[in-house]
Amino acid sequence: MNIFRLLGDICHLVAIIVLLLKIWKTRSCAGISGKSQILFALVYTTRYVDLFFTYVSLYNSVMKVIFLASSYATLYLIYVKFKATYDFNHDTFRIEFLLIPCVILSLLITHDYSPVELLWTFSIYLEAVAILPQLFMVSKTGEAETITSHYLFALGAYRALYIVNWIYRYYTESFIDGIAVVAGIIQTILYADFFYLYITKVLKGKDFKLPA
């Protein structure tokens, strides 16, 4: 554990809490892509099956349980409790276009052909692109609520911090995981446009609106 990873994990946790609080406080999931949240639930479910097989640390296990529980809680709020506010008309990204390539890629490029390893690899690839339905939704409506943009920023910053952590680990432990690094870089690049608009607009107190 190093400071970059810890900050990354904290950003990830903040993102999830911000999203849950936003939906809970406003009693609405308007502007939130349920499809991205389905993909994230799938990411955590496939990655954290190792909860049953391997023990890393208390921190590790607790965080995994929090990520799993909060992702299903988010799905419950979107698809059950506040279903009436779910903006399904704008959430039209076809997730099979992400799921199928991720399945194929994880069968082609993996560290090991064991079930748990294949699920982990799939989860890494899927996480890299899981935000696309949400970004698609923002681009379709041309705007995002300020709180939604805070959520997206924290979620993007998490993987960006992981990249710094991987560089640090490469030099201190000579450890590098090619699959996680390449997927993590792609994941961060997908947020780049958003980061730019967030920094130039939202942090200056303006609304998050895409240029016409």
């Binding site: 990873r5 994990d9 990830h12 890393v56 590790n60 090991d112 000579s174 450890f175 995981d177 090619g178």
Partner: peptide, 10 residues
């Protein structure tokens, strides 16, 4: 050098 699985990250 790419090393194999060591999934201590989240």
């Amino acid at each position: 050098e790419f090393r194999g699985p060591k999934h201590d990250e989240l």
